[in-house]
Write a protein that binds this DNA or RNA. Structure first.
Lengths: 338, 338
DNA sequence: TACTTGGCTGGTAACGATAACATGGACGAA
DNA sequence: TTCGTCCATGTTATCGTTACCAGCCAAGTA
């Protein structure tokens, strides 16, 4: 009964509904002016034919894709996932869809990814972090669409920014630790070469220590980012052996911090009595583990939500010049520190 | 010096390089036959003009988007993230890109999402789970592209399947628990109405208990899925109060199981001496927490990897009929159970 | 009545790449 | 030499929708 038919087009729907293709097109748009009856007739015809709207043609002709391109370092990170979720929810109300890619914490990979994403002609592009290869910067600058850098406060932003200072956030934790009496404070992070946010946190740690007149020799690099719980635990082991007088540790993330806590538990070292531990990111585990974890809430969801709002404003032409939204992370004190 | 110029097209590049647009098109494809010199000249001209390849036009004309559409219940779940990552890595070698959406564990939302994704004309679509609304089934069936259901073994698959039996996996844990002497075993999960994989696990639990001649009155529903650590902890509190004679608990996920462990710690209840705990999913935390967590490895990455391979085979025409790849989850025994 | 105004609908020509087919020249075999 | 083959390149038409511009008609206004 059916030959290998091509899928129906708007023309087919138009024919069946007794209208022009142009009217079918309008019937599929929310705001377009079509009479109620006509729209219903068109949608009914479309349904009967099993018509599926073809975005590829729409994208080309209208020069709009309704894509928002997003790059994150890793898809397996609850912080970035929170940001993406809030961003996605925020823009989806306007029919915008996230086109997501991950860079593996590698600026070269970011370059490839950004180029690939820009070919899809997104309405805007959101990148995590403010450090890029020269070619990435050039691509983003010339893309002709809004560019939003997040999770960082770049000194020379490409366009818009929704972020916070990783260094400053860690500084506040150091200030607190010093205020309550810790002196031999260590820092556990990943190899600094790749994860720029992690490097900023470590730099903030060192600078803050210096400002308190303290040296910062206790630096453990636990491997290529992201640092897992396991790597955090291993780093804690190293730390305890190399610097037995350490009285507090700040970890680059809650995950590594939790790993560090468990390593102390396995070694029978009391947290926080013998050693205090701080994390970063306010992951769920930090609130529920025993002892609970002192950490920094960087408001990952807010970053996504405010990025979404920024994008909508820019696309609406409500924003003349590049926006700069600064988030102020919160120090959350819990049982793992005094 | 700059007017509001339109971005350059292939025609512009062709003109500058002294070739035809067709040759430019070929120069941008990997396999196309273009002489080395010509290709280099074209790419140089493109670079000088700041030309960015326009996928939207390519997509329409070639009727290929190189998208693989994927739906997952939540973007904040390490298991699904693992699957997506492996899938993405597996197909990206062939220039295929993931177009990701999440359903919030809601089949209605899945329906909306699937329709939206299909409009983008992906080369294939991967859905998590085997339960769908009738309309979703119809959309997928008629889409004319490979459909792969994952993380489940549907009785009536729409197309291909890469999954495992959630019920069977839990059954094996029950079998083990019973074999080592536990009798008063409880199950902590989410409200069954939405998360079908969670519901399958619970059903598997009840059936297995029955097969051992045991009742299964100890069922705690901890709220809408996904169940967080916190909800797992709360559920554990309820369980201890309502069924004090419980000697073992199986949780719908490692996250809720870890929450349950912490609740026991806060109440001074020894795990596994007073109560054994099992999780699901082999999240990193289960391997590192103290006590470490007995769990089920569902091989999330393998699901993604095998799905990628399946897609490539199907697109190459190497597969005549629907594929059915069955994963066999592994029971991992750790300290939280005897 | 004549003339706006505004809501709805239709016709035509793109959007920018590339599938399909054609062509021209280099090269080797007969 | 002559013909066939293959590689590199060009020409033409098209993918399916929608921007743009009209046109029509009913309702409101002077």
């Amino acid at each position: 009964m059916h030959n290998i038919r091509k899928p129906p087009t708007m023309a087919d729907v138009a024919h069946r509904a007794g209208v022009s293709p142009m009217t079918v097109s309008r019937a599929f748009k929310r705001e377009a002016s079509v009479s109620r009856e006509t729209r219903e007739a068109v949608l009914r015809a479309a349904d009967e034919l099993g018509y599926v709207f073809d975005s590829t043609a729409s994208n080309l002709r209208s020069q709009r894709t309704d894509f928002i391109a997003v790059t994150i370092p890793s898809i397996n990170n609850a912080n970035f996932a929170d940001t993406v979720r809030a961003l996605s929810d925020g823009v989806s109300e306007r029919g915008l869809q996230i086109l997501l890619g991950y860079t593996n914490y590698d600026v070269q990979e970011e370059e490839r990814l950004v180029e690939q994403l820009l070919r899809r002609k997104p309405e805007a592009i959101v990148v995590t972090g403010g450090k890029h290869t020269p070619r990435t910067r050039k691509l983003l600058t010339n893309a002709g669409i809004p560019v939003i850098e997040t999770w960082d406060l770049p000194e020379e932003p490409i366009g818009h920014v929704v972020g916070f200072s990783n260094a400053q956030a860690v500084r506040e934790m150091v200030d607190h630790f010093v205020a309550v009496g810790y002196r031999n404070i260590a820092f556990i992070g990943g190899d600094a070469s790749r994860d720029t946010r992690g490097a900023d946190r470590r730099a903030g740690f060192i600078a803050a220590m210096k400002d308190h007149g303290l040296d910062a020799p206790r630096l453990i690099a636990a491997g290529p980012p992201p640092i897992s719980m396991r790597e955090g635990a291993n780093a804690m082991g190293q730390l305890l052996e190399r610097f037995p007088d350490t009285d507090a540790v700040i970890c680059v993330s809650d995950l590594s911090a939790y790993g560090a806590i468990t390593e102390c538990q396995r070694r029978g070292i009391a947290v926080p009595e013998k050693i205090a531990i701080g994390g970063f990111g306010d992951y769920e585990i930090g609130a529920i583990c025993v002892p609970s974890l002192t950490t920094i809430n960087a408001f990952a969801s807010e970053i996504g939500g405010k990025t979404a709002k920024l994008i909508l404003d820019v696309l609406d032409g409500k924003l003349g010049e590049p926006g700069r939204v600064t988030i102020r992370p919160d120090l959350i004190l819990r049982q793992s520190s005094l």
